[in-house]
Design a protein around this nucleic acid. Structure first.
Lengths: 278, 278
DNA sequence: CTGCAAATGAAAATTATTTTCAAAATGGAA
DNA sequence: TTCCATTTTGAAAATAATTTTCATTTGCAG
């Protein structure tokens, strides 16, 4: 409920009959107003256009135009549809799939902790060995992450076999990093592997969508995704997408951090060489 | 980083000089536009009102009015940046990675043929066997597609080995479908496999980013992606993302077309995975 | 250079919004 | 109730904003 709704309620007693009709309609049809002209709205409310203008001015606006803008800015915006219905054309489905992706990324951006991301990046940059764990849908993300980190010059390996995960985890030690990816955060094997990694002294990072899952306990750093939980997200589409977006960001963070380090290292070397010169 | 900024960036190359001036001004003065009339904006941009209207329509709005409302709904609109620079925090990098994804998806939506998508969906729904071909980066997408189509109750197998691809292709027959995924569209082995599949009577589908590539010839149906070609797209991030979005849309098309059967199949699979969780 | 197609701006046409003003409703006092 | 003052309202005029049309310009391939 925006500021305008509150104002409307507050000023309701001071309105006349016609203006109240407007207030009622606006309250009953949130967001709909922004796509109507003053004439259409007047018709909807059963009053004259002049009344609409007066109503707008009562709310502190300069006119109807400004009211519409204000309402739109408050979030009465056009809702993006992600709901696929029987009868949608493949292209319509494509659009909705995209919308789903948009929303998930946007939402993830909202809840992702900048601090956790920074910590994860730091841990990875300074890591000895990096082990990535993922099963099922998340296995490909783990593999993708390993591939990228490797390219960035880190020692990263992905394990998508639960036996291998346990073995790899038990061989980690202080200074190493274990990165587990699990949408639900409750995949038994993954939680087990991360726990083991932590016990052996590795820094543990989890990428998960679930704020209340067993994986949070053994994780030093948690990166939350916010995949849209629509009825048709069973296969974890958006979940994978958001996981991927985080992996990518980490990859670039690593690349840019390390290049920075490399530059400093070069400068350092130069400086220490200065003393050797006249 | 609203959708409109992204769209604006995407459509910028297709604009004329005057329209670009509008785009530039809007980008440079985020949020300011909503308090201006079309006449004032035209003056600011040094163009005619007609150009403003054309600009609005290019962005998919019905006119200037709607553009203002949409911009207001987006909350002013910070300009989109995808250019990662040294010194960006991991979170800033994350935002830029997301923007890159947004842009690629938006662009793909623009160029993807609704007709081709429909045809592809139809072919897959009525297919006997489905063979998916991908190499390198695209291999994982092919595997993903096979996984989904399988879940939807279709007989799909992915081949990421060029020998196996040829063998599989030669075993296809009329009524079967071969789906090749290749960003460049010029991977010899993939083109060969698709050609072979076509020769054996299968319906052939290609997903590619390249409008002038050898893969177009043996393909009955072509689905174009439009991955952003930014300086940091070396690993084919966005290419994979857009391919994935198409696969997803196809998957849902199939699911909804064959709804009853497929939904049951999904439920069955889910049930059998439950035992793997806490 | 020439002709064509795309892009543009001026002005006309349309539409939306605001103001004005007279009529209708409201409400208190005789 | 009836009257008058006040408020509220809608019709229509006035204004402003937006959209469309169309002639002109621009850019470009042949």
């Amino acid at each position: 409920m925006g500021k305008l709704s509150i104002k409307m309620k507050h000023l309701y007693p001071s309105m006349g009959k016609a203006e109240r009709q407007v207030a009622d309609w606006v309250e009953a049809n949130p967001g709909k107003i922004i796509s109507l002209s003053i004439v259409e709205l007047a018709e909807q409310c059963g009053c004259s256009e002049a009344t609409i203008v007066r109503f707008s001015k009562r709310l502190g606006m300069s006119g109807f135009q400004e009211l519409k803008i204000s309402l739109a800015a408050e979030g009465g915006g056009t809702p993006v549809s992600t709901h696929i219905v029987s009868g949608d054309s493949p292209f319509q489905i494509y659009e909705k799939v995209c919308n789903d992706m948009f929303l998930s990324l946007e939402k993830t951006k909202q809840i992702l902790s900048a601090d956790a991301l920074q910590k994860a990046s730091d841990a990875l940059c300074g890591a000895g060995k990096i082990a990535l764990f993922g099963l099922g849908n998340s296995a490909s993300i783990a593999a993708d992450g390993a591939h990228k980190f490797l390219r960035a010059g880190l020692q990263a390996v992905a394990y998508s076999d639960n036996h291998m995960q346990v073995i790899a985890a038990s061989h980690l030690k202080k200074g190493d990093v274990a990165l587990a990816i699990s949408h639900s955060g409750s995949s038994k094997d993954i939680v087990e592997a991360l726990k083991l990694a932590k016990e052996h002294g590795a820094t543990t990072i989890a990428i998960t969508n679930n704020g209340k899952s067993p994986i949070l306990k053994p994780a030093d750093i948690v990166l939350f995704t916010a995949a849209e939980e629509t009825e048709h997200n069973i296969l974890g589409l958006t979940s994978r997408l958001t996981q991927l977006s985080i992996i990518d960001a980490l990859y670039f963070s690593i690349v840019y951090t390390r290049s920075q380090e490399a530059l400093e290292s070069i400068a350092e070397t130069e400086k220490s060489l200065q003393s050797k010169k006249y």
